[in-house]
Amino acid sequence: MDASDIRLLSAGTALPGPPVDNVTLARRFGMDDLWQQWIDVFIGTRTRHLSVDLDTGETVVSLADLGERAARRALSAAGTDAADIDVIVMGTATPDALMPATVNEIADRLGIDQIPTYQLQSGCSGAVQALEVGRQMLAGGGHRNALVIAGDSCARHFDLEADLRSLPPAELVNVVLFGDGAGAAVLTSDPAPGTVALRRVMTRFTGRGRAPGQIVRWFGQADRAGRAAGIGEAAVSEDYKAIEESVPEMAAEILAELLDSLDWKDTDLDFVLPPQLSGRMTARISERLGLDTAEEITCVGQTGNCGNALAFFQLEEVLGLLGRGDRAVGIAVESSKWIKAGFALERL
């Protein structure tokens, strides 16, 4: 069947722990009011949820925990039984382990077996990439229902002993930007009336010859022993200036391309789901998009930047708002190696 007829039945999400506001975060790191004021003004993210217990420093929630909860919510909202899922696709930059893949841990917990499962190594465009793999698997025939999951947990990078006064800006920014979370969605090839069609999905690598905007390294036994090259490098670092400069323009290009491919005008859009970098950056991007007549669906102020999961928080909200004939566009940019991603929805 035509991929543009694949339906998005539901989305579900999960967050660990209570919301952590900027005052709490600042105090936990021994920082003062000035630091908290700076996050308010320059990051614009009010809260995030963390898989780490801030009192004990222990990781209390795994990515599999979050993915399982999100998947159960999505399945319940879709009215789909786990036994009816034919394929699972997951995206994450922060799996619980490199092997086994977290997608298979989640499948096991859901009682799912004997179906193909895929896990993508992905960042902020991961939800869109996973949606597209699931959508194409259904369009290709042989599968009827796909469960798509995406999420991230920065617990292993959240060093509560770090002296933030001595961190370089490229690392400091990560402490305030990120949160943990997971999302899931159910896709189907059943074209039931009144459901939401996933009209278009685009995901494209655009980073040829370009330095990464974000790097997340991983370390093994030789690294632990201090023998491997690069052991002194930061586990996570961002070229935040390149991101600030490039992402608004890339988002505008993605929007234009999606609209053009569908022969939609920007005034046809009822909702827009912009990239969720931080409260402040998302506001800048939205200003650049200039979609005055479309309602913006934004979550990053409350969830923090939870990477792969973000689009599902936006999808969960917009699915409850889309009326018959309404249209929405979602946009994501992965600055790691500069991936453009986006999707278009329409309720029939």
Binding site: L34, Q37, W38, V41, F42, L164, R165, P169, L172, K241
Partner: peptide, 26 residues
């Protein structure tokens, strides 16, 4: 950039022992 402002402000607080207010620095 704004991150340099934050880094510098925290260094100055530590060096001078005085608390700073962001609005004054802005």
């Amino acid at each position: 950039d704004s991150l340099h402002l934050l880094t510098l402000a925290t260094l100055l607080e530590r060096t001078t022992g005085r608390s700073l207010v962001l609005t004054d620095l802005l």
